[in-house]
Design a protein around this nucleic acid. Structure first.
Lengths: 216, 216
DNA sequence: TCTAAATATTTGTTTTTACAAATAAAAATG
DNA sequence: CATTTTTATTTGTAAAAACAAATATTTAGA
């Protein structure tokens, strides 16, 4: 598997998670920051390799092999993210692009040992679950803050958007995973919320609320 | 810089260290496990990028920029080797091929933090020096065991051949960096040696002796 | 249902790295 | 010093990944 092939597989897996049954070439192109014609070529190759099912004009769907492949890459990506934060003191908005490179390193021993060094973490710095060696993982039951009734309380366990800008915003307002959050008020007009975070009162827009997960 | 370009620069640097003033295309081809015609192409490109001096039929020589590049790659390679041994309990014969991949990861912050995590090591697991951020390093004054007079004593500080087979051989006979070594006898017939290592008496062939460094 | 718009694929190129075969230059040898 | 051998380069191709423009298919609108 080349880096490029791995990136396609990973992105197809993520697109599948976030909606559509069959993934379209254009959707892949957009995520890969490439053109649909390039995607058609690659998708054909991956299908020949048995990593996905592809019929012209019908979109694409990972095979079991393809899914296993994707989970293995995601496992590596997230373990490296934990490593960067826990061992090298990276902040959570800096890890993604480095992990994008590290995820392609080929050594099963390396990743097993890394898992051991980090004490077999279950979640990455953004709260996303880390698949185990066999690809198994449990998604935490969690809710987006904007979908939860008034007075709900819980622990902040993840972000939906893990872009650097959003994460830096959260840092600025001292919002982090593990904090106790309670929804005090919801403004009907714009969907903004008043929260109690640990012991502070914090106002956040609906945009923010719809990207923060809590576990009730 | 692509991975391939980086590998060329690194190998040219090593070839220069180990002999020739100007490095020949064929020598590069052999080390890169590729063909001379491919080397000519690449060398031309690297010369256009200002990383080396190249005149047809005259061989090749790194520019200051090329040397700095090479040292930066070697720094990454050796730091990753230390990481693998110190933090992930790899043995010294397992680190090379993984480090070959890790050395291409692009993140200055990553490598600086790694250096910090490892407490700024000066030598890698085979005793080779690790360049600092500016490319500076000090080669230890060391001698090959086969070139040293009888009764010389010192500390084992490095290996010349760092192939897995040689390193495994040393493991098998409990020879490791840091040990006290004294040359007790040299057999004129075949150049083999009798050593005192810590408190054992060990017989080694000239072949072995010519790949082990001690610091007197 | 027929046509226009949206989506996806084909075709023909480009760039990068590599190779084999043919050729050219340099070095070694008689 | 002419010839052979070694070494290096050129030329013409290949595979991987990508793109633009042309074309085909599907879907949605009228």
């Amino acid at each position: 598997m080349t880096h490029s092939e791995e990136n396609y597989i990973k992105i197809i897996f993520h697109l599948r998670r976030t909606g559509m049954e069959e993934v379209s070439t254009n959707a892949i192109a957009e995520q890969m920051d490439t053109k649909p014609s390039s995607v058609t070529d690659m998708v054909r190759k991956l299908s020949e390799k048995g990593l996905l099912h592809y019929k012209k004009y019908q979109g694409v769907k990972l095979t079991e092999l393809g899914k296993a492949m994707a989970l293995s890459i995601i496992r590596k990506h997230r373990l490296w993210e934990v490593f960067l934060v826990e061992k090298l003191n990276f902040s959570w908005d800096e890890v993604h692009e480095v992990a994008e490179q590290l995820e392609h390193i080929k050594s099963e021993k390396l990743i097993d040992k890394l898992d051991w060094l980090l004490d077999y973490p279950k979640y990455d710095p953004h709260g996303d679950p880390i698949p185990d060696k066999n690809g198994a993982f449990k998604e935490r039951e969690k809710k987006l803050l904007n979908e939860v009734p008034i007075n709900t309380a819980g622990i902040c366990v993840g972000v939906k958007d893990s872009s650097a800008t959003f994460l830096k915003f959260l840092d600025k307002y001292n919002i982090a995973l593990g904090q106790q959050i309670q929804v005090l008020e919801r403004e009907e007009f714009d969907g903004s919320l008043v929260l109690k975070i640990d012991d502070r009162e914090v106002h956040i827009s609906n945009q923010i609320a719809s990207n923060l997960y809590i576990k009730i």
